[in-house]
């Protein structure tokens, strides 16, 4: 399975299938509710590799994700539009769109045994804008 991550804000961050290694989508609802709760949120966790540029290639834009995670809440730039595509066998299995996503967790991990670093990005949709979250899928890659 391949993944494509696109973050649109003041600059566009695009990470392709060679970088992103996993995607977890989750709808957060209180587990102790007796009936359907209005307290609903949505979280996406994206894991990937931090590659080193060789042969004069441009650097991947994972550093931009780290910079986004550090944007203070006072700036409107902390909310960005995120879309994540899960692609297999020329089919878009899922496309998640979060128009007002903000970072709740960002981690980078490096060790002396691997040639690449890894990152974990956890984002949420702004809770009052939950209606704008879109989950699509099941069509051919255009």
């Amino acid at each position: 399975m391949g993944f494509r991550l696109k973050v649109e804000g003041p600059s566009t961050i695009e990470l392709g299938t060679t970088i992103v290694t996993g995607v977890k989508f989750r709808t957060d609802i209180p587990h102790d509710s007796n009936a359907r709760s209005t307290d609903m949120g949505s979280t996406v966790t994206i894991t990937g590799k931090i590659l080193t540029a060789v042969d004069g290639d441009p650097f991947d834009s994972t550093r931009q994700l780290g910079l986004w995670a550090l944007v203070p809440a006072e700036k409107s730039d902390c909310y960005r539009k995120v879309s994540v595509e899960v692609i297999a066998a020329s089919q878009v299995v899922r496309k998640y769109t979060y128009p007002n996503a903000f970072v709740v967790d960002y981690k980078e991990d490096y060790g002396d045994v691997e040639g690449v670093g890894s990152f974990t990005l956890t984002i949420k949709q702004k809770k009052d804008k939950m209606a704008q979250v879109a989950v699509e899928g099941g069509y051919s890659v255009s």
Binding site: M1, G2, F3, T17, V20, T21, G22, V23, K24, F25, R26, T27, D28, I29, P30, H31, S33, V86, A88, V93, R94
Partner: peptide, 14 residues
């Protein structure tokens, strides 16, 4: 009350 989808690059199915 809870829904999760999990995809990785090591498997062919989520």
């Amino acid at each position: 009350v809870d829904y999760e989808e999990d995809f990785t690059d090591e498997t062919g199915a989520g």
